[in-house]
């Protein structure tokens, strides 16, 4: 359900700007990289946003990078998350900081194709 929540927000934000949100502008990826560690995103989503394969009922976060949804969806989700994802209120993480984190996530390249990794073809 987590994915669908984000997608839903993405659709919503594509049509209507969410009330109270600062307008999204390109974030600072370098700052985002540091924030990503400092405020703990890496703990549950991995240092490259690769995510953890959750156990049957695990609480590790899914893959974040490269991001598949617009920044507004991430902002909305992070404020009102679901499942095992803790909330980040505006008081402790600003919209601009989320934009920076998003910019960092966008710098992470897609991995090589599975067929080109011999160890994943054993």
């Amino acid at each position: 359900m987590n994915r669908s929540v984000v997608v839903l927000f993405a659709l919503m934000t594509g049509v209507l700007p969410l009330a109270g949100q600062a307008p999204a502008k390109a974030g600072n990826a370098e700052n985002g990289k540091q924030l990503y560690v400092k405020v703990g995103c890496y703990q549950c989503h991995g240092r490259q946003g690769q995510g953890g394969a959750s156990a049957p009922f695990g609480s590790y976060g899914p893959r974040l990078a490269p991001p598949k949804v617009p920044v507004a969806a991430i902002r909305a989700y992070v404020r009102h998350p679901s499942g095992g994802m803790p909330p980040y209120a505006a008081k402790v993480l600003s919209d601009a900081q989320i934009d920076d984190i998003y910019a960092f996530l966008k710098t992470i390249p897609s991995p090589p194709a599975v067929k080109d990794i011999p160890l994943l073809n054993q």
Partner: peptide, 8 residues
């Protein structure tokens, strides 16, 4: 296998 390729 695809999931494993991330952060390889």
């Amino acid at each position: 296998r695809v999931d494993a390729s991330y952060a390889w």
